[in-house]
Nucleic acid binder design. Sequence first.
DNA 1: CATGAATGAGGATTCATTCAT
DNA 2: TATGAATGAATCCTCATTCAT
Lengths: 191, 191, 191, 191
Amino acid sequence: MRAKSLTEQARRAQIVAAAIEVLAELGYGATSFKQIAARAGLSSTGLISYHFKGKQELVDSVYAEVRRTFTEFVLERMDHSATAAGELRAFLSANLRFLRAHRAHMVALAQVRPHVSAADSADDDHRKMADLLRQGQRRGEFREFDADTVAIFVLALRNGVLARAGDHPEVDLDLCERELITVVELATRRG
Amino acid sequence: MRAKSLTEQARRAQIVAAAIEVLAELGYGATSFKQIAARAGLSSTGLISYHFKGKQELVDSVYAEVRRTFTEFVLERMDHSATAAGELRAFLSANLRFLRAHRAHMVALAQVRPHVSAADSADDDHRKMADLLRQGQRRGEFREFDADTVAIFVLALRNGVLARAGDHPEVDLDLCERELITVVELATRRG
Amino acid sequence: MRAKSLTEQARRAQIVAAAIEVLAELGYGATSFKQIAARAGLSSTGLISYHFKGKQELVDSVYAEVRRTFTEFVLERMDHSATAAGELRAFLSANLRFLRAHRAHMVALAQVRPHVSAADSADDDHRKMADLLRQGQRRGEFREFDADTVAIFVLALRNGVLARAGDHPEVDLDLCERELITVVELATRRG
Amino acid sequence: MRAKSLTEQARRAQIVAAAIEVLAELGYGATSFKQIAARAGLSSTGLISYHFKGKQELVDSVYAEVRRTFTEFVLERMDHSATAAGELRAFLSANLRFLRAHRAHMVALAQVRPHVSAADSADDDHRKMADLLRQGQRRGEFREFDADTVAIFVLALRNGVLARAGDHPEVDLDLCERELITVVELATRRG
DNA sequence: CATGAATGAGGATTCATTCAT
DNA sequence: TATGAATGAATCCTCATTCAT
């Protein structure tokens, strides 16, 4: 595993970026190396194979890149000082804002997720969310519930809203954000 | 649109059933006529083309069949006499039980949905759910919220749970069902 | 080689008629058993295979039928009593009239000719035409020319006009007929 | 519409040449990518699809190539300085000589013409011929006739002779050429 | 590094034909 | 005889990948 040169890194990033755009526009099934190469302004699909061992590595790279961008975006907007409830709220907020800022990433993520080989890193999300919920329970902010199960719910809400909003541009994201926060609060708070 | 003979219907059903299995096991991308024919014990992919005008018709038929099975299953278990809250509860219950009874159908549905040509019948679901919620609001069972938005949430919960449980067999569906009902009740009830 | 029953004959005729229509409308390449069966109101392509040993026999039958109809039509309108020049004129006339009366047959003939297996019966035409020309020469009606070569020309004119008129409905067949007769007369007459 | 590299051009030319040979030998119906690839010494039909967007583009390319060769051949042998009658004679001459020099092209042309997508360029031929005839009439070389109709005849003669000679190698092309020129002259000249 | 030509497996689909009923 | 279901070869085409330059 040699270190990647700068050019190498730049090319990979360029290809991944193009792949994200194509995935968002055409969907996974229609996303071929040809399309990606065209979008990236490359003159040969061979270059993609040169930089990525195979389609799978490209898919995984796309996934990793979207995740990285997403995580960074969310982390910047999380409220770390405060309560678990506050963090949860911030998390949901950040997600909806990410959709507004990077819709293509969001759609590409949905397209790519079923084909990612990596030990499902959606599990990471799940674990972190469950931990946050448990923390809130220990602090007495949240009622008693099975944290793993409710973690599924919270992430399901997140994913579902993103999916719906991705397909239906008419969805009012501000309204959605407020209602989502309300719903999650009602569902989790103590008393 | 001629009537289909009995044999015809049987073959189509057999092919659709095989397609559902293959979709559930291999995913949409790997579901070729070859795979389906093999699974169905057919000697030629030509036979699929003989019974279905094209891949799209097969995909749509799979979707329709899963939907039919699903709707029937859910309807049998719905509580029509009672309150909107009761109906909502019954709906969620039925969904989880369907997953237990017909896991392959559920997974195939997820695989097939993005490729269905029919005017997105996910919108049907949405509309019905929103109507149910509005009815509950008029009857004073539910608090004030934007019904269309919360409909997104309820269906998102349903879809997310099914997806998660589809991938993670260790999920305790009974527990999941109870928590889900609790969460939705907390999120929607008045007061 | 058993004699064909009446039903058999009728069925064959029906299939051939349907084939002629399809050939005229869709061209040879798009003329499949499926199309023919549909046109003939048959419920199975198998029936075609049952009545014709293979596609080739059907093609040949179509050719034979069109030829038969055509020859009969032309013969009825030929002027047998008179001069060779008169016969030639009558032949050309009859051809153009046949096009008007049976355009589908004419087009189907053109479609089918390249695929007919029969020892090219276009040669028959050629031989007969050359004979007629030679007869005219012997009688002193026609100038000296190589009859076989000019036979090619006369038939070429016939075929070309039919082809053109088949494709271009705006062609004035009356005008065409007059000019054609004039041209052939100028080209063949003595002196 | 990017410029084609030299290799690209060469391959395309090679494939087109192979297609012409196959078309001439087997006819349109039997001319598959497989046959063409085999004839061209290619290891895969995929290569044809790589160089041509589809079968239609290949067919059109074959047509264009044959047309190009043909036009070039004829133009080189046309007598531009002289009378309309002279030009007409030169045109007919050149056509017959082309058949001798490039029989395969000629046969392939006939095979391919019905499947060419281009706005029927046989109409071009027709228009040019009619113009030539009208010019001759204005100059007093030709008798009065309907130029559009006689243009059909001239081209019909050309096509018919080529077709006949294509199928029947025993046709004496020299004789044919002389007779053809005589016939056309008799049919068109004034007085 | 980058190019673009080449490869061959695999895709859906159409077709004439066969066969049991 | 007639039906319609079944067959398997053949069609064009797309794809990821490889390789010489």
